[in-house]
Design a protein around this nucleic acid. Sequence first.
DNA 1: CGGGCGAAGATTGTATAAAGTTTCGCCTGT
DNA 2: ACAGGCGAAACTTTATACAATCTTCGCCCG
Lengths: 235, 235
Amino acid sequence: MAAKTRQKPDAPDASDRVSRIREGVTAAILEHRLLPGTKLGEDEIGEIYGASRTLVRTALQQLAHEGIVNIEKNRGAFVARPSPADAREVFEARRLIEPTIVDHAIDAVSPAWLDRLGQHLAEEREAELRGDARASVRLSGEFHRLVAEMSGHSIYLGFLKELIARSSLIILLYRRHDTPACGTDHHAGIVTAIRKRDKQTARTQMLSHLREIEAELFLKDPAADELRLADVLGA
Amino acid sequence: MAAKTRQKPDAPDASDRVSRIREGVTAAILEHRLLPGTKLGEDEIGEIYGASRTLVRTALQQLAHEGIVNIEKNRGAFVARPSPADAREVFEARRLIEPTIVDHAIDAVSPAWLDRLGQHLAEEREAELRGDARASVRLSGEFHRLVAEMSGHSIYLGFLKELIARSSLIILLYRRHDTPACGTDHHAGIVTAIRKRDKQTARTQMLSHLREIEAELFLKDPAADELRLADVLGA
DNA sequence: CGGGCGAAGATTGTATAAAGTTTCGCCTGT
DNA sequence: ACAGGCGAAACTTTATACAATCTTCGCCCG
């Protein structure tokens, strides 16, 4: 009895309006269209999405919980600006979690998933050739998320979603050179290892991939973020 | 310039009313006063804390994001009832993260922290002797949280807070025997290893501690939760 | 006597309005 | 000319009112 005729629980963010707002803002941040420190006014966003401030506020609170938005009391919401210390923590956490995620993904491997991964690699290559930096950044993050979804481990997936979003901000703030193409080949190597169900190689590749991304960052003094932001805004 | 005269960022939940609600409900769940499946009506909670529904709603949404409350559309908020699969995921994540946290805690060890740990162990023993099951459950979780705070790793701390809260629900739902005293000695052993700055032993003890907790659980069929809930309610 | 339909009650979702806080410009006084 | 303070505007915060939805209980029909 009590048939589960409710809406599918695995579609937590599909049609409701607050999720549309949340995903819209998230996408803008992940694609580096919204810069750290940008103010996110409630009226402003509400008008864009045709929603009242109540819904906007809900979305912003969720984003704050995910760590990509800071809400300052009586001042409003701003795109987060992770400190170098935050950056180190985020990447340490990723180095801990993602190798394990790859393990699980290999356990759950299936033709459908392999198709999906191959398709994703194609999209990444295409965006690369097109020189579409925004799409490249977004797809680069989505690759890691895809592997996490594949693993079927919902808790790791939730954690990694947060870490990826923060990583996007960190890379924007602290990368040394403009290296948009960093790591496309790495992803291909990881997929190859997954295809072969070679856990050891997959773990190692994921780990070194993350290390290389972090090595590209300049995480020294806490004033660097202001410098970097000035750079971006001046451009 | 721009002196950081804002309210301390490390006191994110001290005086504002929504945090009081959130922490009140969280404490009730952690102490097993609120059972899984219990409905959390907005008016009901609002009246208890003397707050309007707006604030209650905010608090419930935060708790939902932490995974200890489920919000069903047009039906309301309920104390979460983790499935056996959820339980396995939670403990796997803890086995992955907590040994690393202990490592960091040992790096950050100081007399003040050792005092704090010793004091906590004393509280746990006292609650044990007193036979205060609620306090025991709460303190048992707080021990792990304390170690995470000690590590100074804010991301791991955030993740672990979620995992601890869910663990409390899981233990309530799935433990075999009524074993309230499970693991007090384990905690003492971990603290001893921290005192000696013996990372290897500390990691091992933490890992076996978590394994033993999970071994006490009965994570078989998905119908067990209903049985278990009926048990508790009948008492 | 059991099952299904329907209306009333209750509860949540959303919007709007009132209240409090911060910020920024402007004006005055030195 | 410049420092300091006053005041208005804009924004966030909180509360309340309205609309939509679900649940429940009673009643009617089979």
